[in-house]
Design a protein around this nucleic acid. Sequence first.
DNA 1: ACGGATATACCAACCGACCGGTATGTTTCA
DNA 2: TGAAACATACCGGTCGGTTGGTATATCCGT
Lengths: 216, 216
Amino acid sequence: MPRPAKHHPERGDARTRLLEAARDVIRAKGFAATSVDDLCKAAGVSKGAFFHHFETKEALGVAAAAYWAETTSAFFANAPYHRLDDPLDRLFGYVEFRKTIIDGDPAEFTCLVGTMTQEVYGSHPAIRDACAASIFGHAATLEPDIAAAMAARGIEADWTPASLARHTQAVLQGAFILAKATGGREDALDSVDHLKRYLTLLFSQPRSKGNTHDGR
Amino acid sequence: MPRPAKHHPERGDARTRLLEAARDVIRAKGFAATSVDDLCKAAGVSKGAFFHHFETKEALGVAAAAYWAETTSAFFANAPYHRLDDPLDRLFGYVEFRKTIIDGDPAEFTCLVGTMTQEVYGSHPAIRDACAASIFGHAATLEPDIAAAMAARGIEADWTPASLARHTQAVLQGAFILAKATGGREDALDSVDHLKRYLTLLFSQPRSKGNTHDGR
DNA sequence: ACGGATATACCAACCGACCGGTATGTTTCA
DNA sequence: TGAAACATACCGGTCGGTTGGTATATCCGT
């Protein structure tokens, strides 16, 4: 039985399909509850193919986290808010963009690496590290705008751009948990609104000199 | 449903030991990765005892969430910050108290029901509901102090005490994820500090409606 | 240009261990 | 003595992972 093969491209077809299946199924069921057979069925691939591309299930977890980091960073890099001139506007644009993503089922808008981190941080350090790299790498992309916004407004703070960037991720991850708990999006959106309000207050609260500017 | 009387209360009965084992093991390994045998071994009881007290593993998950709600609510109810006179002081006392708890290994200070929610929200609705009841029940205990603090300072806000209370839980849950990702507590503590700063800014806002933040 | 060696990409069948759960007791105590 | 509180042995199914194989693509000496 000759099967259609197309294997010169660097990344095989089955591998990508497995990674996409992992992204979807693990977000819905969690890493531990997702069996290799689940993944193979979702990807339309045999078990032999799975272990051809990934040494172990753990290795797939690591690759899935890396794939997530790749695809999401491209996704955010192409988002429209980057075209805004003011750094602070871009920061608010990011948060607003995150809000627009929160739609549909939690399995569709929540964070793969956040979910996996919480589940496997103790038992699969390799996956945990790959997830951490994704989370903190994404947070780091916010730092330049935060730093520029602070500089533009002469803000002297007892917090760093890095800590605020990571805090935004904490709020988002926590919002996802609330959304999963209720099954709805409202509490998550409310929490992101609180984050927006925090940013508004932070950047309209001159610590050093009285600078009067528009609140937004 | 009601607890049977203890016949021979030496060292606590098997049911409680299983619940405590569930609290510890599930926080470290997650619900799905924790087997019934794991729980029995950790609790020092036989498998027969497990299924004598819990119909299924899912039923144990529900009971573990309820046990968590019970024990944590007693824990917070006895915390010293409740003795403060001012409602806002009690709110900050709560947050500060949460900070002091963040110590040791993540498995020791993170939230059982937050972890379980994220993992089983899709596959075990009964557990998810029990976890949600614990999370939102705990958040609700903060509402009276928030409302009183708002009233005392004449704050008219576009947010409700309930939404702020839930936001505090979102930040804490998100902070736990950061802690699990890094293995350390610093990012978690930083995030809670941002929450404290947010509360400070919120409650030092001008009390009249003439403030300029549009928050959108 | 061509055949063979080699490597890649995949598949179906299979394996031992372990999973959640059960059947059948034995002990403990009101 | 009866029921609740445990314990032991076991079951069918599923788990992550292995085995042995096939079809195709690429390289290379001739």
